[in-house]
Structure formats: C-alpha cells, structure tokens
Design a protein around this nucleic acid. Structure first.
Length: 219
DNA sequence: GGCCAGGACACCA
DNA sequence: TGGTGTCATGGC
C-alpha cells in the first residue's frame, strides 16, 4: 500500500475512535458551518478566504459578526459598504485586503453560477489553496486541498520534501487515493484534525498515530 | 511580549 | 524561479 493511502487509513482509524460519529459534520458538510448563510455553502466560501494565514478561531469571530449583522448571502456581501465589511471581519486579520477580495469574490459568484479553477485563480486574493477549498468543500469537486498542515505533516513523515510545487503535491494525493470528492474532504479534514492535536512544536511526538509510517529519524 | 495561525501578492535580483 | 516584505488580529 502506498504511504499516503496508508496514512489516510491510520488517521481514519485513530480519529474515528475519538469521534465515533465521524469528523466535525455540520449540516451535511465536513467543513464546519454554523451561521445560517444563504446558500449554506457560501459560508464555506467566506471561511476559505478569511482563514488565509489566520487562526480559525478568529475566522469564527468574523463569521459570527457577519451573521449577527445579517450579512449572510452572496448579495449582501457583494453590496455591503467596504468599510462596514472591514469592521465586521476585522477579527480575522488582514481585514482591509480581505474585505476588498471578499466583495469581489461575491460579485464574481453572482455573475457566474458555475465557475472553473482557472476563473477563481484569476481573482485577486484567490490562490490555489483557497480555490481548491472552495471547489472541494463548497462545490463538491474532486480536488484535493494542499494546505500548510498537509505540507507540514507529510514532509515530517518524509513522504514529501515540502519543496514541491503545489500542483505536484495535489496530483500526488489525488492519484494516491481513490478519486472522490467525499474521500478528499474526509482525508483533508482528518489532516486538519491531526494537525491540531499533534506535530505542532516537536517534529514527531511519541503518541503520534502515524509513527508506523513516519521515517523521521531514520533518514 | 513574542510567536504563530488552514495565504496571496508585489517586488526584486 | 526563488527569496523577502507586507498585510493584522487574537490566543497562548
């Protein structure tokens, strides 16, 4: 079995024990949503942009501010005054550029019911990770999201070097496991879950459920 | 008080 | 193509 597939199985086995009902599932989505956006998956889009280089807890604060102000729809974001949006999403950091980018993204979605990865990437502030998060979690497309957690964990495991091009790592993951939207979502969610518990400071901790695929120290 | 968090982009050599 | 600075808040 390849190392990536084996890692997935180990994560699934370990964390399904911690969360018998599965990973965080809210309203049918593996991505955490809880603020009644319209449509619900638009909360994923907003969260994907706001979480750029930011702690998720701060994103939660910004999402709550938006919900409390009844700014939950694509139209509302597209039409809100930029200065008002800046204040609402302020806790998520980089609020001035994020407000501008979020409004532009909302306007784009209003004008394009269906869109491609290339179209998303052409927007200011939407890079590969954010585009793939939107495509996978909000649009249910079979693309694998490569984020800082993925790179950190798999480079420490010795499975990637960490210096590879984004799309190279993405294709490696997409071809290593059975291609499927839900599987990609679950695997990435497990990586996030794992990263929050393990491998923050020290390279590998003793209780890491991935020790058997970890070649750290053996190189 | 310093470090870090689920990036992206402009600028420079 | 690769390295560096910038954007900024909040928790630990």
């Amino acid at each position: 079995m390849n190392q990536i597939k084996n890692t997935y199985k180990l994560l699934k086995k370990h964390y399904s024990k911690q969360h018998p009902k599965g990973w965080i599932k809210t309203k049918g989505s593996i991505w955490p949503i809880s603020h009644n956006f319209d449509p619900p998956q638009f909360e994923i889009v907003v969260g994907a942009l706001l979480t750029q280089n930011t702690n998720w807890g701060n994103v939660e604060k910004a999402l709550k501010n938006l919900a409390d102000a009844n700014i939950r729809s694509v139209e509302a974001i597209a039409n809100i005054k930029t200065t008002k949006l800046e204040q609402l999403i302020r806790p998520s950091g980089f609020y001035k550029q994020k407000a501008k980018r979020l409004k532009a993204l909302a306007k784009f979605i209003l004008e394009n019911k269906n869109f491609t990865r290339e179209q998303l990437l052409s927007l200011n502030g939407i890079g590969k990770e954010t585009a793939d998060s939107i495509l996978n979690y909000a649009c249910n497309k079979p693309v694998f999201v490569i984020d800082a957690y993925t790179k950190r964990i798999f480079s420490r495991l010795g499975i990637i070097s960490g210096n590879e091009d984004y799309d190279e790592i993405r294709q490696l993951f997409e071809t290593s496991i059975k291609k499927g939207t839900k599987l990609f979502q679950e695997f990435h969610a497990l990586i996030v879950e794992h990263a929050k518990v393990h491998c923050r400071k020290q390279p590998v901790c003793e209780k890491c459920p991935l020790l058997e695929v970890c070649d750290y120290g053996r190189k």
